[in-house]
């Protein structure tokens, strides 16, 4: 299988003059700027084959969005090379545009005061799509996403989840072979997230599309992508199939218990007690050794439980752990 995306030592450095205070500082700054360099992305290399669904994850500021932007052609790298469908993104952006679909989670590409249908009509022209094929694709997407009545309401009146579904639909109307999704589920409630994840997986798998997804949310990765690239501080620290990653690093849950008693003691393997305040117990559960429901059952059995919270460990911790674990490699 030929590589759809091929990246070699891609780097991006930002340089900006540091502002000095006061009038003298400002004048001095104009003549002898104190330039600071930030390495947003420091030499990443990877390849993505056709039909793969890849997640790029990492904490805030790790360089995920920067990498994605370089692959789309919206940003020029300072060093390194990349090819998407054999094209150099930042040099052949318009040609590449026909073959990729992009969704930026926090930005809208639809015209707000008008119904989505009107935005789609313009997009058809922009991508030079013939009417028949376009109508067919739109009908299918509307059915798959359940957009029916939403198409004729002004976009600004839709809920965030409904709007995201329209955004993703918009990015698929010209039948791109490669989808870039930058934080597509950010800010959405659980039902909306599930709907989008299901859709992406079904659609991509069914049509053999390649998907590159960046996210903060580990469930996005687990449910949609078969491969995970972890970026931290501008570098790739892990590049593995999701199964492997899950087995190694994501098999943890954090359980927080509020109790009447100052402390709860549960005698089960795979539990690590984290420091906390009285009447609160925070347990780190290794789900490879014990199931969360066993922990909950044991806690309830001990009586006097007022509140239970089950959550994924924060992404920063997971990535830090990954980084520490792979630092030796």
């Amino acid at each position: 299988m030929s590589a759809v995306v091929s990246v070699q030592s891609l780097s991006k450095q930002y340089r900006y003059p540091r502002r000095r205070g006061g009038v003298l500082g400002a004048i001095a700054g104009a003549f002898a700027p104190d330039v600071q360099t930030i390495d947003a992305v420091g030499g990443v290399s990877f390849e993505i084959a056709a039909g793969e669904r890849v997640a790029i994850i990492g904490p805030n500021g790790a360089g995920k969005s920067t990498t994605l932007k370089m692959l789309c052609g919206v940003l020029e790298p300072t060093a390194g090379s990349a090819r998407v469908f054999g094209l150099v993104p930042w040099l052949q952006r318009k040609a590449l545009a026909y073959r990729i679909g992009v969704v930026f989670g926090q930005r809208s590409q639809l015209w707000g005061e008008l119904p989505a249908r009107d935005s789609f009509a313009l997009l058809r022209r922009i991508y030079d799509q013939d009417e028949a094929g376009f109508a067919r694709r739109l009908a299918r997407l509307v059915e798959q996403f359940g957009l029916g009545e939403l198409l004729d309401q002004p976009v600004s009146r839709l809920s965030l989840g409904q709007r995201m579904r329209c955004e993703i639909t918009a990015s698929l109307l010209h039948a791109p072979e490669l989808l870039f999704l930058d934080e597509p589920t950010i800010g959405l409630d659980i039902t909306a997230k599930a709907a989008i994840r299901d859709f992406i997986t079904e659609h991509a798998r069914g049509e053999g599309k390649t998907v590159v997804l960046t996210s903060h949310d580990m469930r996005d990765i687990e449910l949609v992508c078969e491969r995970v690239i972890v970026i931290n501080q501008g570098r790739i620290v892990v590049d593995q199939p999701t199964d492997q990653l899950r087995r190694q690093f994501l098999a943890r849950k954090r359980v927080t218990l509020q109790s009447l008693a100052p402390r709860i003691v549960i005698d089960l393997p795979g539990l690590t007690v984290l420091p906390s305040q009285p009447h609160t117990s925070v347990l780190d559960v290794d789900t490879r050794l014990v199931r969360v429901e066993q922990v909950i059952a044991a806690a309830l059995a001990s009586g006097g439980i007022e509140d239970i919270t089950i959550e994924d460990p924060p992404m920063e911790e997971v990535v830090r752990e990954i980084y520490l674990a792979t630092a030796g490699d």
Binding site: G73, V74, R107, S108, Q109, R125
Partner: peptide, 18 residues
């Protein structure tokens, strides 16, 4: 300023003209 320009740059038609 909002960065929405990037979304438009990804399209094959000139944003400014539109």
């Amino acid at each position: 300023r909002s960065g929405a320009l990037e979304t438009h740059l990804l399209r094959p038609k000139l944003y400014l003209l539109l």
